[in-house]
């Protein structure tokens, strides 16, 4: 029994199909509870007023936007090294979800920035890096759409994803160097194990993060299944025509 068994498309579909409703259900439950809690039951921040409630959308979305790219990077590497089709298709399936997460993080950030910093958009390092991440997602998706042959597309997008990751990290440092920002530091520094927000805000935030994560997982599973079926359909049609 090894993990690579799930690289078999049939096995993947058979395993994930019963999982999807559960994961999706728990994700939605987490989101409803977390957002409800955050929206109705948390106090206003003494400086930010009620806008602090936006954090329950902004932080989890930003987290998943980066994690989605990271997952695509891993899937691309697996595809290039072990040539499992499911892996390449999972990377393809994750990209649109990732771009939506990036968009949510950007939009909520802009809406929050308007009353707090007095501007919708500031060329702040974090905001700018997210905009650049958005552009990377756009290019990646466009390359997938542009190439007919699925294996060629998988190869080229994987190479782009790897090179893009290097340049995305580079851009992050370049942008930091370029402009010291307005954005506050991270609220949940994992590395140090401390945190800068109080428990009242923290618990619903964690629930929302779990919800976003599971939602991403469920969506990737559904979309990967769809991609597998599209591949199979195309192969069958080709065979019938010949």
């Amino acid at each position: 029994m090894s993990i690579w068994e799930y690289a078999n498309p049939k096995k993947f579909i058979a395993t994930t199909t019963p999982l999807v409703p559960w994961v999706l259900g728990v994700a939605i439950a987490c989101l409803v509870v977390g957002l409800f809690w955050g929206f109705f039951l948390t106090p206003d921040d003494f400086r930010q007023g009620s806008t602090v409630k936006i954090i329950y959308l902004h932080v989890p979305a930003a987290l998943m936007a980066i994690n989605a790219w990271f997952m695509m990077l891993l899937a691309s590497l697996v595809w290039l090294v072990r040539r499992h089709h499911v892996s390449a298709l999972a990377a393809r399936a994750a990209a649109p979800v990732g771009i939506v997460m990036t968009l949510i993080a950007l939009i909520t950030g802009a809406i929050w920035g308007q009353p707090m910093w007095g501007t919708w958009w500031a060329w702040d390092p974090r905001l700018t890096s997210f905009l650049i991440l958005f552009l990377f997602y756009l290019g990646y998706i466009a390359l997938w759409e542009a190439i007919e042959d699925p294996d060629t597309a998988a190869d080229l997008t994987s190479v782009l994803c790897i090179v893009g990751s290097v340049f995305a990290v580079l851009s992050r440092y370049a942008v930091n160097f370029w402009n010291q920002g307005l954005h506050q530091g991270t609220s949940v520094p994992v590395a140090t194990g401390e945190r800068t927000i109080s428990d009242v805000f923290f618990v619903p935030l964690v629930i929302c993060m779990v919800g976003f994560g599971l939602l991403f997982l469920a969506l990737v599973m559904v979309r990967t299944q769809t991609e597998i079926r599209v591949r199979r359909m195309r192969a069958l049609e080709m065979r019938m025509r010949s």
């Binding site: 999706l24 989101l31 957002l35 929206f39 206003d44 007023g49 009620s50 806008t51 409630k53 936006i54 959308l57 902004h58 979305a61 649109p96 979800v97 939506v100 968009l103 949510i104 939009i107 909520t108 809406i111 929050w112 308007q114 009353p115 939602l215 969506l219 559904v222 979309r223 769809t226």
Partner: peptide, 27 residues
Amino acid sequence: DLGNYAAEVMAAYGLSILLLVGIVAVS
């Protein structure tokens, strides 16, 4: 009571939930 920022908070929640529901529905 959302105070002065009701419009902003509601807009953020509205747009985000719309996007999330959208991607789920499309998928």
